[in-house]
Amino acid sequence: MLTTTGGIAVEGVRRSFGSVRAVTNISFEARPGTVTALVGPNGSGKTTLLLMLATLLAPDEGSIRINGHDPVVDPLAVRAIMGWMPDALGSWASLTVRTTLQLTARMYGRDVAQAAARADELIDLVELWELADRPTRVLSRGQKQKLSLARALVHDPSVLLLDEPASGLDPAARIELRILVRRLAAEGRTILVSSHVLAELDELADTAIYVERGASISAERVARATSSARPWRIRALEPTSIVPALIAAGIPADAIGADGSGILVSVDTEQRAAGLLGVLVSAGVEVTSFSPATGDLEHTFLDLQSRHDGRVDGSGR
């Protein structure tokens, strides 16, 4: 069922809505068997890009290939192999979870028996047993997310587009989602995930595409941002012992901060961080935790933002 070659290839895609330029220039590739994160602030064009990949919107310019098929020229070929989980939680309010999945399977050309069997499998997969025969309007936001994911998987697609899949999920469900998505990728599927929860994408994604104001950010700029200084969080049995030891180690006082759970120090490379840890331990500080305060994606994201806007807390526009 799954193809070994393919994945998503996007080249110079542009899309405007009237005078609003939603996507100006996005290029990237997503390979089979990997999870690719789509990272960017609100309004940066992530959802518009996913709608174009999902064969719902035609790009004004540029080319899209999904497993080699062009969604504009041959949308049916793309739809047959592509599963899309929208960010909007639309469901037929009066229909049950089971009926929703069965009807979706039928819309993919499965017969009644196949559709019924597939619906049962998916209810099992996303653990909606108790709610299987309840109308979808009683579902909570997180339960609707599960239904939406199940619906995207109905036809066993080899390419998965997940728009904010974790929003509304409780921590346990997030971990389950992560395990499921990793498993789906391990089966050879191409998975593209957009999310605002960057810490979560860190553990989920193999690679990331950063978009800003409708354009993908070049690999060099991403590399620069990735290698820039980042805060590390240090905790010790005796918290007050940390700062004097840091100053003694030659760290300037303005590079030292604090948050609710520890002391924050700005360090530019991992080598220096390792060296600093050695200095602290040998200075007699009983270190219990020494780790980056931000995830890799979050760090890169915030750095790209600050370089663009000249501020760290920029929200894109």
């Binding site: 709608l51 739809r79 469901s91």
Partner: peptide, 13 residues
């Protein structure tokens, strides 16, 4: 409006 049209449009119908 209820967000279900697009979920049909991405299928083979």
């Amino acid at each position: 409006d209820s967000g279900t049209l697009a979920t049909m449009q991405v299928t083979l119908v």
